[in-house]
């Protein structure tokens, strides 16, 4: 907008090259007015940004700094003010044996659980999401209806979907066990949420159900922007549709899919609600968020819990940076 305005003033200058000095003076006045308008706009821009920046600083920046600080103190929920600095003792300390979060097997299990949950659920969501998007991209009667239906799982509050699935996965009265027993796939009812070997899968089932629509929508948006000419060419050449998908479609929708994957992965790494509702604080599904909140709120150990929060923050930041770096390099090399 600014550049365009400058171009306009330049035009005026070009037209008035042979004009009288008075008009030349008017022209320079005009230009001066342009920079004044511009300066005023920049000032207004910062003024308009200020409320948002202040709020974000109050709810994100400052609390993050305080959480770092608490992680190096012995603060408890009852006495936040009386917190004493203790260095890295919450993280790791040697006192006739190793203590601290990094010496806690439960924390390591929560890290492993979080990574396992993230990789499996996001991989399933990406695959299913692409399939759903391909279906929705086809032309058929009732497509709008199907598209609206697919959005429903995304709209349902996580807590509600966790409750609905907890009921469907109920060991005695659940419909899933009923169906599986009826089909003869299992001999006895499975206790999905209580059995340590199954509960992670129960959580993954719910998350995949809820999040696949999001991936599907982003991929669908990319599919709708694909040029149709290369498909016609492929059709004329008689290339098999599966081959066309892997050679043409998939590479073209890859950027959108990668964006969807990072959004989903960031969500999965901080997963809390589904697990809290389905399996509470059980160790077999404990994730880093569940672990940190349990320390903070239930055990009232703000120092230790803040250290767990800080580690979660650092791990997510690290994964994001690595992913962005690898993604950019791969995309750069591919094109």
């Amino acid at each position: 907008m600014i550049t365009r305005q400058r171009a306009a003033t330049a035009d005026v200058a070009g037209d008035t090259r042979d004009a009288a000095p008075l008009e030349r003076q008017a022209d320079s006045l005009h230009r001066e007015r342009g920079t004044r308008v511009r300066r005023r706009r920049v000032r207004a821009a910062w003024l308009f940004l200020a409320p948002m920046l202040v709020v974000l600083a109050a709810v994100a920046g400052w609390p993050l700094v305080r959480t770092f600080w608490f992680s190096m103190t012995d603060a408890s929920l009852a006495s936040l003010e009386g917190a004493q600095f203790i260095g890295f003792e919450n993280y790791l300390v040697f006192d006739n044996g190793w203590y601290g979060i990094m010496a806690d097997p439960l924390w390591w299990q929560s890290v492993w659980n979080t990574l396992y949950f993230t990789v499996v659920s996001v991989a399933l969501e990406a695959m299913l999401g692409v399939i759903v998007a391909l279906v929705l991209n086809a032309r058929f009667r009732g497509r709008t209806l199907v598209r609206a239906a697919v959005l429903i799982p995304w709209a349902i509050p996580t807590v509600v979907s966790a409750k609905i699935w907890a009921w469907m996965l109920n060991d005695q009265f659940g419909i899933i066990n009923h169906v599986l027993l009826g089909l003869g796939l299992i001999d006895a009812p499975l206790s999905w949420t209580a059995d340590a070997s199954l509960s992670m899968w129960a959580v993954i089932i719910v998350d995949v159900w809820k999040a696949t629509p999001f991936v599907a929508l982003l991929v669908l948006a990319a599919l709708q922007m694909l040029p149709s000419d290369c498909y016609e060419a492929a059709k004329v050449d008689g290339i098999h549709p599966v081959r066309v998908f892997f050679r043409v479609t998939l590479p073209l929708i890859m950027p959108a899919l990668l964006v969807a994957i990072i959004f989903r992965a960031l969500d999965a790494l901080r997963v809390f609600d589904v697990i809290y509702v389905l399996t509470s604080n059980a160790s077999s599904t404990m994730t880093m968020s569940i672990y940190a909140r349990q320390q903070l709120v239930e055990f009232q150990d703000v120092g230790y819990g803040s250290a767990a929060s800080t580690l979660l923050f650092l791990i997510i930041a690290l994964i994001t940076v690595v992913y962005l770096y690898l993604g950019r390099r791969q995309l750069g090399g591919g094109s």
């Binding site: 709810v59 609390p63 608490f70 603060a75 790494l269 809390f272 940190a292 929060s309 800080t310 997510i316």
Partner: peptide, 21 residues
């Protein structure tokens, strides 16, 4: 970029600081 970074925050990471605020 700051705004984008905030959207990537895990909520738990600010829990104790926000509680204090």
């Amino acid at each position: 970029m700051t705004v984008l970074g905030v959207s990537m925050f895990p909520q738990v990471a600010v829990l104790s600081g926000l509680f204090e605020v």
